[in-house]
C-alpha cells in the first residue's frame, strides 16, 4: 500500500465546497421551516393538499400553488419571497451540481478530464442560476 502525501489543508476549492455543502445543508432546514410555516399561515390546513404544501416549502413561488384553493395568492408575490426563492435556488443548485461533480470525479481519474468536467459544471451552474432567476423575476 503506497502512502499518499496529503497537502496541508487550506482554503482551496475542495475544502470550500466541503464546508459549503455542510452549511447549505443546514440552511435548507431553515429555509424549509420558514416556507412550511408560511404555507400553514396561507391556509395549508384546509385549502392546500400535501403536494402544494411541499411545493411552497421548497420553492415559495405563487405559480407553484395555482391549483390550490387559496383565495388570493397575489399578496404572497413580494420581494421577500423572491429573495427566498433565489436563496433556495442558489443553495440548491450549487450544492447539487457540486455533488454531481464530486460523484463524477470519483469515477474519473485523469487530470485532463477533471478540467473539462469542472468547466462543464461551471457553465451548467451559471446557466441554471440565470434561468431560475429569470423565471423568478418574470413570474
Amino acid at each position: 500500500m503506497q502512502t499518499k502525501k496529503i497537502p496541508h489543508p487550506g482554503w482551496n476549492l475542495e475544502y470550500m465546497m466541503w464546508m459549503f455543502t455542510r452549511l447549505s445543508g443546514l440552511a435548507f432546514f431553515f429555509l424549509a421551516i420558514i416556507g412550511m410555516a408560511a404555507a400553514l399561515v396561507m391556509g395549508a390546513r384546509n385549502q392546500m393538499d400535501l403536494g402544494t404544501l411541499m411545493r411552497w416549502t421548497f420553492f415559495p413561488n405563487p405559480n407553484h400553488v395555482l391549483d390550490s384553493n387559496i383565495p388570493n395568492v397575489d399578496i404572497w408575490a413580494n420581494g421577500f419571497w423572491q429573495i427566498m426563492q433565489m436563496l433556495v435556488i442558489f443553495f440548491g443548485g450549487t450544492h447539487g451540481l457540486n455533488g454531481l461533480r464530486v460523484v463524477i470525479e470519483d469515477y474519473t481519474s485523469r487530470p485532463a478530464w477533471q478540467s473539462i468536467t469542472r468547466l462543464l459544471f461551471f457553465v451548467l451552474w451559471i446557466f441554471m442560476i440565470l434561468a431560475a432567476v429569470y423565471v423568478i423575476l418574470a413570474s
Binding site: L97, G99, V103, A131
Partner: peptide
Amino acid sequence: GLGMIIFISLHVVAS
C-alpha cells in the same frame, strides 16, 4: 442526490 439534481434541473429548464 443524483435523483434530486436531475429533477430540479429538469424543473428549472421546463419552467
